[in-house]
């Protein structure tokens, strides 16, 4: 059954891929068995991250570079992430509006996704979805993050190349030297370059980058007007140049290691959360909470004890442990 789905996906069945992405989002435990078997068919695609503040032009840039990639004969998978409402759990996913022309191109697969409460600019399902689109045969996978502020930097651990899009008029030069988002770009794009303030912003970003001495890669700063297709070819050339640099310098492997590490941490957290929730279900956690509230025990000791109990029962196989090796 799992192998059948994997076969369908590796044969290019878009519907099977779409359904598996849904399963990853809704019921990871069920998807896990399929993902295990899918893993052998992944690792071929290059992953480009597009990030930047809301309204800076991420979707439009994604649309335009995809069109050029298609002219070059490459197939493209796009994961477009928008935020989930913290109040209702609903989401309005509107990134496709800028990518209408791509919807009938069989060489392009677009999936809109909401964060579902996940912080960091991506959704929980992002890394698994990259693998699904990879196995579906896409050469390039573009992840468009949610519109970010200053600290949503998870993309740097998932993408091979991070394109950071800014635009004029978003604040003074101190914003540019703040820590966080401005540190993660491999390529800086100043979009809406026909707006006032573009030259100043470009200079400020260049100055900020000149002060970084710890990397062999000096990120280029490009100007684009994405809606008019201005500067997009150059952007793709720079992405190519960066990928080449990653391969030659050995940094690609290093980044993939980081990505694997992040995934392991995320998966372990997810699994422990689930184990913890079984403690909530059977009332065990309530007993501990009662003790803490009555001041019979402090929360720090309680957690120490709880952790050792959990680790013990996990290694003894008392808690469902699906590793057979």
């Amino acid at each position: 059954m799992e192998m059948e789905i994997v076969e369908k996906i590796t044969n290019g069945d878009r519907r099977a891929a779409a359904k598996l992405i849904t399963l990853v989002e809704n019921n990871f435990n069920q998807a896990r068995e399929i993902l295990k078997k899918l893993y052998n068919y992944t690792g071929n695609a290059l992953v480009i991250g597009i990030t930047g503040p809301p309204g800076s032009g991420k979707s439009t840039v994604t649309d335009k570079i995809t069109k050029i990639l298609r002219e070059q004969g490459k197939t493209v998978g796009i994961i477009a992430i928008d935020p989930t409402s913290p109040f209702t759990g609903g989401a309005l996913l509107g990134d496709r509006i800028r990518m209408q022309d791509l919807s009938l191109d069989k060489g392009v697969f677009i999936r809109s996704m909401s964060t579902r409460g996940h912080l960091g600019g991506l959704s929980q399902a992002t890394q698994a979805t990259v693998k699904i689109l990879d196995a579906l045969g896409k050469d390039i996978i573009i992840i468009e993050t949610v519109g970010v502020g200053q600290s949503e930097v998870d993309i740097v651990k998932v993408a091979d190349t991070v394109v950071l899009i800014s635009m004029p008029g978003m604040g003074d030069d101190v914003q540019i030297i703040k820590a966080g988002i401005m540190e993660i770009g491999d390529i800086f794009v100043i979009n809406k370059a026909d707006k006032e303030g573009c030259e100043r912003l470009t200079t400020e970003v260049e100055m900020m980058l000149d002060l970084n001495h710890n990397s062999r890669w000096r990120p280029p700063v490009l100007k684009t007007i994405a809606t008019d297709n201005v500067g997009i070819k150059k952007l793709l050339e720079e992405i190519d140049r960066h990928i080449k640099y990653l391969k030659e310098s050995g940094e690609l492997e290093q980044r993939r290691r980081e990505s694997a590490k992040k995934e392991i941490f995320d998966l372990i957290q997810g699994q422990w959360k689930e184990i913890l929730s079984t403690f909530v279900d059977n009332g065990f956690l309530n007993k501990i909470v009662n003790k803490i509230v009555k001041r019979e025990e402090d929360p720090y000791t309680a957690v120490e004890k709880l952790s050792s109990v959990l680790v013990h029962s996990y290694t003894q196989g008392d808690i469902k442990n699906d590793r057979k090796d």
């Binding site: 209702t88 609903g90 309005l92 996913l93 496709r96 209408q100």
Partner: peptide, 17 residues
Amino acid sequence: RALRDAGMEVIYTGLRQ
């Protein structure tokens, strides 16, 4: 918007499809 507020994930694709 109403479906979003009802907790659904709504994909909106724009005009002239």
